[in-house]
Amino acid sequence: MSSMRKILTESFPILTIVTIVELLAGIQLEIRSETLITLPILLVFIPPINNLGGSFGSILTSRISTALSLGDMEPRFVRNENLEENIVGIIIVGLISSIYLGLVVYIVGYLTGIQSFPVTTSILFGILSGLMLTTPIVGVSVAVAFISWNLGLDPDNVSTPIITAIADALGISCVMVIMKLFGF
């Protein structure tokens, strides 16, 4: 059972940090719960916005880790073609995905009869959240990849949970900011 101890001791500290970050996201939901209950379509936006940030953050981190292992990149913030190309690619994916996100939430609302925004507002909502999320997530992902590389931690075990937690907290904050912008 020594390997069970290994799994537990490696995962527990990371999951604890992640839990605290996630609960910072959760408490924002609790504070704005009345608005979320009266405008349920906003709740539909939350999981996909979180997934959007989480998945492109973890893709970027794992690509950087691979580039670092292969020696194609140095773990420093200097101009580097490989890093720039990865970032540009991720930003393009982020933008396309956020348009798709707005559209899908609109369709889910339409099909399930949850009172929704007009399709243009829904897509605008998606694009705004995509724009707000992309920059910080790109920064955090590069930083996490470099830091875990420099500390000699396995990025597979460490980066993904950290990135997803930060993406969740940022994603929910984005929804809150957009709610303010739209006056909900």
């Binding site: 349920p40 709740l43 999981p47 996909p48 939430v105 889910v108």
Partner: peptide, 13 residues
């Protein structure tokens, strides 16, 4: 993941 998550959002509602 966006498609799946939107359905989870519906479940949340």
């Amino acid at each position: 993941s966006i498609t799946g998550a939107s359905l989870v959002g519906f479940g949340l509602v």
